[in-house]
């Protein structure tokens, strides 16, 4: 009996450790065990650990992120092809706007730092200040660094994470460089959490790769809606707010379907695309004669499916 209790305690403490590493709230059993401490003492705040989040106001996405965007730590956003870099940059910039706005509501005028590998800038185009302004970012509080190499970019990012000034730090990297592998991403994640700064890792034209990011989204462009007319109809042939197609590649919660969003720069918030349009887009993307007989995998939708079970990614960098 005593042996059993020791084993149980060991398992509980291991689970506790794992939960702390994964930065999520404690699993139910551990919490129950902690609450019913044999000695009758309550342990401070460990059980009631609350992650600070920034809700996006979109049901499926907030559920996926367990409440909202995390206010610290690393997040990864990637796009598959260089020509989609505009959409992905738009999504990243939108997140930066949200973080900046969140800080402004607290009374801080916090700048956003965008670190870019020079190669990424040359391939996908340089950021354009009037465009950023019309997108909702505060151009006076937007700092930009073009780092010559990935190592320089990483150094600047790490330095910036130690400074409690920035509303968000964006690290734009092209492809899967070898010097930004799992261990480096873990290091950045730890730094970002220690500095209470959100770090948006923007991987341009990169492969899926194991990382310590809290989530990884692949962004694809989606057709935008038309401009509404006063009588409720839509102006034919016009292009309104930018829309995004989100493929959830890594997250703590299960994503049932792809998510379609629209960024409203004027309101500075995301809106879900209405049901009809997203349903049409979902159908559009499907091949007409699906030949893949395997069932859709849990948690990741419509990736090219390898046969058998995917246990670990091949190292992309």
């Amino acid at each position: 009996m005593a042996e059993n209790a020791v084993q149980r305690q060991t398992i509980l403490s291991l689970r506790d450790t794992i939960a702390r590493i994964e930065n999520c709230s404690l699993p139910g059993i551990v919490r129950a065990a902690k609450a019913a401490d044999a000695a009758g003492f309550r342990r401070g705040s460990e059980g009631t650990f609350h992650r600070k989040v920034l809700p996006l106001g979109i049901g499926p996405l907030d559920d996926l992120l367990k409440g909202g965007l995390p206010l610290e730590g690393m997040m990864e956003i990637r796009n598959a092809e260089t020509r989609d870099a505009g959409a992905a940059a738009g999504f990243v910039a939108a997140l930066a706007v949200l973080y900046q706005q969140e800080r402004r509501e607290k009374g801080h005028l916090a700048p956003v730092l965008w670190i870019s590998q020079a190669l990424a800038c040359r391939e996908a185009g340089q950021l354009y200040a009037p465009g950023l302004k019309s997108y909702g970012l505060d151009p006076e509080r937007f700092l930009f660094v073009a780092a010559r190499t990935v190592k320089d970019a990483l150094w600047i990012a790490e330095t910036a994470l130690a400074v409690p000034v920035f509303a968000a730090v964006v690290l734009e990297i092209r492809g899967n460089p070898a010097c930004l592998a799992l261990s480096e991403s873990r290091r950045l994640n730890v730094r970002a959490r220690a500095g209470h700064v959100p770090l948006l890792l923007f991987r341009q034209a990169g492969e899926e790769e194991a990382s310590s990011a809290f989530f990884r989204f692949q962004i694809k462009p989606a057709p935008a809606g038309g401009r509404p007319l006063p009588d409720g109809s839509v102006l034919c042939g016009s292009i309104d707010h930018p829309a995004f197609h989100l493929l959830v590649e890594k997250s703590r919660a299960y994503a049932a379907a792809d998510i379609f969003l629209e960024w409203n720069a004027h309101d500075r918030r995301f809106y879900p695309l209405d049901e009809r349009r997203s349903a049409a887009l979902q159908v559009n993307g499907q091949p007409e004669n699906p030949v893949d007989p395997l069932s859709a995998p849990a948690g990741r939708s419509r990736r090219a499916q390898p046969l058998g079970r995917l246990l670990a990614f091949a190292r992309a960098s």
Binding site: G86, P130, G131
Partner: peptide, 12 residues
């Protein structure tokens, strides 16, 4: 007043 509808990225 700055014109709306400017792109996020431009090519040099």
């Amino acid at each position: 007043v700055f014109p709306e509808n400017r792109p996020l990225r431009v090519f040099a």
